[in-house]
Design a protein around this nucleic acid. Sequence first.
RNA 1: GCCCGGUUCGUCUAGCGGUUUAGGACAUCGCCCUCUCACGGCGAAGAUCACGGGUUCGAAUCCCGUACCGGGUACCA
Length: 550
Amino acid sequence: MMAPARQRADPSDSSHATNRFGQKESLLAPAVAAGCETFCDFVFKADLMTHQQIRVRFAPSPTGFLHVGSARAALFNYLFARHTGGVYLLRIEDTDLERSTPEATRQILDSLAWLGLEPDEPPVYQAQRADLHRAFLERLLASGHAYRCHCPKERLEQLRAEARAAGTIFAYRREMLEPGEAERYAAQGLPSVIRFRSPVGETVGFDDMVYGRIEVETDTIGDFVIARGDGSPLYNFTNVADDIDMGITHICRGEDHVPNTPKQVLIYRALGAEPPQFAHLPLILGPDKQKLSKRHGATGVNEFRDKGILPQALVNFLALLGWSPGEAEFDEVMTVEELAAKFSLDQVKRSPAVFDHEKLLWMNGAHIRRMPRPALEEMVIGRLTARFGFPERPAACSRNAALAPEAWVRGIIGLVVERSRTLCEFEDNLAYFFEPPSEYDAKAMKKFVSTPEQAETLRATGRLIGDAWERVPPPGPDGGPDAWAAAVEQAVREPTEAAGRKFGQVAQPVRLALTGRTASPPLFHVIWFLGREETLRRIEACAAAAGTSP
RNA sequence: GCCCGGUUCGUCUAGCGGUUUAGGACAUCGCCCUCUCACGGCGAAGAUCACGGGUUCGAAUCCCGUACCGGGUACCA
């Protein structure tokens, strides 16, 4: 019985399988020799006893892209493994052929890689382990822990309705049928499912590392189905079979699995295996306190990537949803390594948490500011290239030609790092460096550039800037434009204040002319990167837009 | 309906029977910095710890009940 069970374990990926199972083989030999009774026994105990190493897994079903809730489950498993020096694995639960797609599997692998949550060993595909499942199923059948049930769906419906009417839970037991009824169905050759025979009148429970002791009456569980009519095994069963086979020691998953757990504990026992430790995670809710779903906006990890969220920020944010280091005061902005160092399952909250998009944005901004500058620049340059056609655009005549494109782009990026909370905001904040403003902020235009006098003031400021440009020496080859900007600013500030006017009164119109907006990085830095010609051109264009001519 | 959970500022949370006038973070508001916007700094406001009973000298912390919220109740995972 053991042999067939092991041969099936042949992940399509034979290169890894050889290595992995070769390793396992040597590990198990002593256990077999020691006379471990069952397959699960020796796998489980051998791994556990010889290694004492924690093995966890993330087990998504590929029915769509990776949801942030699932991503968090993966993350908690990952952090737990890293913290304890354990192993973190990935198992794709694709036994539901109806809903699983290869495309979804690709998406999930992709998102996990992006998040940096790749497993320590090659992923295990549940659909490829049919032999193992069959062998385990046979064992359960042989030992009387499971039986074939030919009861037709209509009959089940009737039973369900009766239970509902009586105000009790519907938990199927073969005794519910009339004497001889089951035999009759069998004799009729009706399709049969395999049901797990759960104990009658007992209490089954487990000590959850987050929720504490959870117990339930086996009579509220009943004899549940573990394999479909076509023989394909179901979640509660495959999950246990694979976790035993993979030597999983701790199961950390969403709270929505709590009701499944007692059933699974029963299966572990029937298979002669010690159940692993369980830890359930509180769910993530939307602002309306309902389970987070598409109608709350972005829920897929891929969507966050598209929105310019950094993986380390999403990881950091997710880690703090339902968990905290338990210190009264601490820096919430952390790297994965820092999170792993502090992580502990017993600091996980029991109540669900609302996903606060605003805080994610703040955290993303914090990570942007902490990123090594060159790496940040590469990411942003990639986006600027895609959106604006850098480095071909802007042409040399539309920017400060004294700077090489590379130096120029890094310069403007530096101007907006502390003003951008997402990668997308970099693009928006930098748009006017690539193309002149297509429109001006209407309110500001009315306030600063609507009368002939104002237009003339703007032109006069332009002349001051143009003159100063001739006189002020440009920054040295490796110096930033700070000194240059300060000097040109002085050239504009002095005459302005001498005339008894506020500097801001002349700065804002120029800002409007150059950027079309009322907010931007320091004005003279913007001017420097725009270049003399482009600056003066935009100032004139704006003055002209006020309806006056020079 | 039934089963299983949960409930501390708007949100994320600290708290594990006395050290609590319940601490921090995001968001909000104010001040400083300042050419604007950010960043940064400082400060304010914001929670009768869901409600009602107990236990105790003492409860946000322990027990019970109620309300509300969530999860589950499949030949899905």
